[in-house]
Design a protein around this nucleic acid. Structure first.
Lengths: 160, 160
DNA sequence: TATTGTTATACTCTATAACTATA
DNA sequence: TATAGTTATAGAGTATAACAATA
C-alpha cells in the first residue's frame, strides 16, 4: 500500500483535473455537452442497450441518464425503441446521424489533446490510460467501501 | 506525438473520471463541498494570497473563486483582511479552525484512496501523479491554443 | 409488490455580465 | 480609464424522492 503523502498528492491532482475537462469541453459542438458526448461514445462502443445498462456504464443515477438520453434523442442522434421482452424498458442505439456527430466529437477531442500534449509519446498516453482505468476500477468496484464516514458509527446494513 | 487512437482512449478515460471524483466527494464533511476543500488546500500550501492569485491557481473565474471563498470565510475557516498596498484587494489566509478542518479532509481523502487503491504501490501513485501534473500543465499553459473551433476560420486576435 | 424509466426539486460548479470601490 | 472583487443570472451535471407503467 502507498503512503499517506502520496495519496494526499493524488487527491490534490484529482481536485485539479477540472482544468483539463473544461479545456476538452470547450471544443464540443453546439448542443452537445459532455454528458451527451459520453452517451454517444458508450452506445457506439457497446451497441444497443437499456437505460439501466447505460446508467451502470456511466456510473450515474438513472434519473440523470434519462435526461442525457432525452437530450440526444430529441436531437435525433439516438433511437429509442420498446423492448419486446419488457415493455417497461427502452432499447437505445446510436443512429447514423449520431455516428456522424460522434466522429466530429472524436476528431475535436483528439485535435485538442494532440495540440496540448504534443510532446507525449504513445507510451506516455498508454501509461496514463492504464492508470486511469485502474483508478476507476478501484473506485467502481468498491463504491460500498467508499461510503461517507457516518457509516462507521452505525450498525445498519449498508444501503444497496 | 501519440497517435489518434491513443488520444481517443484518453478522452474516454477523462470523460469517465467523474466516478472517482464523486467517490472522493462523498467522504467530505458536512458544509465542506469540494470547492471549499481545494481553497483550503491551496491556502495551506501556498500561504496568504489575493483573490486573483487564488483564482489563477484554481484555474477558474474570479467570480467563482469569490463564492468559494465566501463559503469558507462564512464558516470561519479562512480570514480576509484588507491589503495595505491596494485597498481593492483582500488578502486571504487559512486560520487554525480551517487547518483543523483541512486535516480532517486530508485524512478522509487519504483513507478513501487507501481503501479503494489498496493494491497500489508508492511508485504507481507517483507515476499517476506525475502524469496528471503533466497533463494539467499541457492544458494550463496552452489555454489559448485549445480554443473552440470557431477561431480557426477568423483572423481576429485571440482574446486575452 | 417490485422494477423500469421519467419528472420535480434541489445542490454544486462553472461562466458572463453588470456593478462597486479603488487605482 | 482600468483593475480587484462581488453579485445576479444562467447552464451543465448530479442526487433523491415521487410518480406512472409494467412485471
Amino acid at each position: 500500500m502507498a503512503t499517506q503523502s502520496h495519496y494526499e498528492e493524488l487527491a490534490r491532482q484529482l481536485s485539479a483535473i477540472g482544468t483539463v475537462k473544461r479545456g476538452l469541453g470547450r471544443v464540443l459542438p453546439t448542443d452537445c455537452p459532455a454528458g451527451a458526448a459520453i452517451v454517444l461514445m458508450l452506445l457506439d462502443r457497446y451497441g444497443e442497450m437499456r437505460m439501466s445498462k447505460l446508467a451502470e456504464l456511466l456510473d450515474i443515477d438513472m434519473s440523470v441518464t434519462s435526461r442525457h438520453v432525452a437530450h440526444v434523442a430529441e436531437r435525433g442522434w439516438v433511437d429509442r425503441k420498446a423492448d419486446p421482452l419488457d415493455r417497461r424498458s427502452r432499447l437505445l442505439s446510436i443512429n447514423p446521424s449520431g455516428e456522424k456527430l460522434l466522429r466530429q466529437v472524436s476528431e475535436r477531442y483528439t485535435n485538442a489533446l494532440a495540440n496540448c500534449l504534443s510532446d507525449w509519446s504513445d507510451e506516455d498516453v498508454d501509461r496514463l490510460n492504464e492508470l486511469l482505468a485502474r483508478l476507476r476500477a478501484g473506485f467502481g468496484d468498491t463504491r460500498s467501501r467508499a461510503l461517507p464516514h457516518q457509516v462507521e458509527s452505525t450498525t445498519r446494513t449498508p444501503s444497496q
